[in-house]
Structure formats: structure tokens, C-alpha cells
């Protein structure tokens, strides 16, 4: 039996919006620590990992582990019926055929209730090792989004080069090339505009911009984005949700022919 009440339907709406282009069907794995989601895109290049901790809900109850196999497109349709400020409650049986979603409007006493049919998705988890990243960059989500969209106009891939001079996003396309360099920067008045770079060793990796642009759809979730790089390891792009909940994207780098 699962019952999870989310104060703001907003969060779930944005999460689903952010990942529905990468992933079509996925399991929401619910256990008593919270709701987790892990899915790869079709091409196995990117991986989405979301964790909504139990603290994000009030109340949260999950007696047994439940996997909710959801088609994200369908879920989007249902969530569209919810106002941003609505209180959202998810309910499911232990071996559920459907997920019950209740939207309660805080302004009036409108209560809408939807049942979403579930699927049996035979999806398996990848073990993601804990990694000490060589470079960790925290920056405004909007800035990251801008860089990605700007460079995507030039080329298919971007090289992210983190060195002590700063972090350089450069691309080389048919029409020319371009680069954006960021340095550590702190804004006392607007801490959300800080650029914070932690570097243990220089890193340079190439990634597909198409995916990065896709990740940036999550910008609405958080002011800041954390980018973690290490050689020979997928890029981690993390958006913080409320508390210690997160939405993480992993992107496999482009690699040269020598393995």
C-alpha cells in the first residue's frame, strides 16, 4: 500500500516534463525511503535517476516495495489536469494495476481524482558507482541552458574543458566554432547566480549537445545545476529538488577510437 501526499503537484509535473522526452516508459520504484526512478534513453546514452525522498512528502507511507510502471506520456496527460499549487496524493495497492492520483485544490474544495493504468515494465537497474569527480561545477541552471542551446546551434557536440583557468565549453561545427568560458564567480546579493568550480585535476570530455539540451528542460526545477566531470566517466548533471531529493542525468561521453 502506497500513499504519498505531495504539497505541490508542481514538482512532479516538472520532473515528468523534464524526462518524458528522454524516457517513454519507466518504473517508479517506491519503498519506504521514497520514490525512485531510474531509466535509460532508448539509445543507452543517457540515464535519468530521480529520487524523491520520503521527506518531500507529507505524509508518506509505503509498506512494501512497489514498482509503478508508468507511461510518462500518459502521466503527463493526467498531471496536466492538476494545478501547480494543488496538493497531489498518489495511492497504489501492493500489486497495483493502476495508480490513483488525487488533486486537491487549496483555494477551493475541488477534488479531482484520476486512475492511471500501469504497465508491467521489465526494466532493470544499473549500478551507478559512487564517483569522486575531478571537477564539480555549480552554476545557474539558466546559464547552463543558455550555453547548451547556443552551442547546439553550431555543432552536434561540445567539449567541456575544465582547467584551472575556468571551465570552457567549446564546439566545432560546419559553420564555424565557438566557445564559452566561465570562471568562479560569487554574487553576494544573488547567491543563485554563483559559479562555483571545484577542481582536483583538469578534465576535457566531449558530449552530445542534443542530450545536454534535453537535460536543460529540468532547469525549471532548480535555480542551480551541478555538473560533475571525470575522465572516462559519464557526465553528471544534477538538479536539486526539495531537501535531499534530486533529479540526476548521466551522459556518456563521446570517445575516440582507441578504447
Amino acid at each position: 500500500m502506497l500513499e504519498a501526499r505531495l504539497e505541490q503537484a508542481n514538482i512532479l509535473k516538472k520532473v515528468v516534463d523534464a524526462i518524458k522526452d528522454l524516457v517513454q516508459d519507466c518504473n517508479f520504484d517506491c519503498n519506504d525511503s521514497g520514490v525512485a526512478l531510474q531509466a535509460m534513453d532508448n539509445s543507452h546514452v543517457a540515464l535519468v535517476s530521480m529520487m524523491l525522498k520520503a521527506e518531500a512528502f507529507s505524509p508518506y507511507r509505503c509498506d512494501r516495495n512497489i514498482a509503478l510502471g508508468v507511461n510518462l506520456t500518459s502521466l503527463t496527460k493526467v498531471l496536466r489536469a492538476a494545478q501547480n499549487e494543488d496538493v497531489l496524493t498518489m495511492k497504489a495497492e501492493d500489486a497495483p494495476d493502476s495508480l490513483n492520483l488525487v488533486f486537491e485544490s487549496s483555494d477551493n474544495d475541488r477534488i479531482s481524482e484520476y486512475d492511471l493504468k500501469l504497465m508491467d515494465i521489465d526494466q532493470e537497474h544499473l549500478g551507478i558507482p559512487e564517483t569522486e569527480y575531478a571537477a564539480t561545477i555549480a552554476m545557474p541552471a539558466a546559464e547552463f541552458k543558455r550555453i547548451c542551446t547556443d552551442l547546439a546551434a553550431m555543432s552536434e557536440s561540445v567539449t567541456i574543458d575544465a582547467s584551472k583557468d575556468g571551465i570552457k565549453f567549446s564546439c566545432n561545427g560546419d559553420i564555424g566554432n565557438g566557445a564559452v568560458t566561465l570562471r568562479s564567480h560569487s554574487n553576494v546579493e544573488k547567491p543563485e547566480n554563483n559559479v562555483d568550480i571545484e577542481l582536483t585535476e583538469p578534465v576535457a570530455l566531449t558530449f552530445s549537445l542534443k542530450y545536454l539540451v534535453n537535460f536543460c528542460k529540468a532547469s525549471a526545477l532548480s535555480n542551480q545545476v551541478k555538473i560533475c566531470l571525470s575522465n572516462e566517466v559519464p557526465l553528471l548533471v544534477e538538479y536539486n529538488l526539495s531537501g535531499s531529493s534530486y533529479l540526476r542525468f548521466y551522459l556518456a561521453p563521446k570517445i575516440g577510437d582507441e578504447e
Binding site: 535509460m40 539509445s43 543507452h44 546514452v45 543517457a46 540515464l47 532493470e124 537497474h125 544499473l126 549500478g127 551507478i128 558507482p129 552536434e156 557536440s157 566531449t206 552530445s208 572516462e232 566517466v233 559519464p234 548521466y250 551522459l251 556518456a252 561521453p253 563521446k254 570517445i255 575516440g256 577510437d257
Partner: peptide, 24 residues
């Protein structure tokens, strides 16, 4: 020139099932 897009399964070990690693 640009390198090939690698698969994420290269880096993350599949935990469940034999096929998870590559034929996911």
C-alpha cells in the same frame, strides 16, 4: 574526429539479469 558516442552501459555495471549490461 569527434569520437563516437559511447553507451552509458559501458560505465555502469548492470546489476540485475544477465542481459542488463549491454542488451538492455
Amino acid at each position: 574526429v569527434e569520437g563516437t558516442q559511447s553507451n552509458i552501459t559501458r560505465y555502469f555495471e548492470g546489476g540485475v539479469g544477465v542481459g542488463a549490461k549491454e542488451a538492455f
